[in-house]
Amino acid sequence: MEHGTDKMGTSPGQLHRLCRRRTPDVTFSFDGVAMHAQEGDSLLCAITTLASHLRVHEFDGRPRAGFCGMGVCQDCWVWIEGGHRVRACTTQVREGLRVTTRGPLLPGMGAETSA
């Protein structure tokens, strides 16, 4: 998997920014790779403007990058530091946030537990 780190445009990202926010830049990390976004960006936007996907599906291992963008399909789950699962499309990026595609492995469980 490849996560681009450039700010605008020339990345392997799926989403493309059509305008810049009038907000400060923030730095966060996705699977250990430092990335730049803007305050107010959802994690879906922050990550998939630079990367092609958010996670891999538990069953078929194929990439997923969100689908509905509005908290309905639950296709965009990622993990943030502290072992929390969040919806990328309804969670805002924060300075220094560490985001991962996979959660912590709990004893006797898979990487993700269902709701």
């Binding site: 799926q14 989403l15 059509l18 305008c19 959802s42 936007c45 969100g66 509905c68």
Partner: peptide, 24 residues
């Protein structure tokens, strides 16, 4: 289920809330 497929509403929300297009 390929990445880059979104709901129609999703494409609108990504534009209105994030200022992004879902592709070129």
């Amino acid at each position: 289920t390929l990445t880059g497929v979104y709901t129609l509403g999703g494409a609108q929300v990504i534009l209105k809330d994030q200022g992004c297009s879902i592709g070129r």
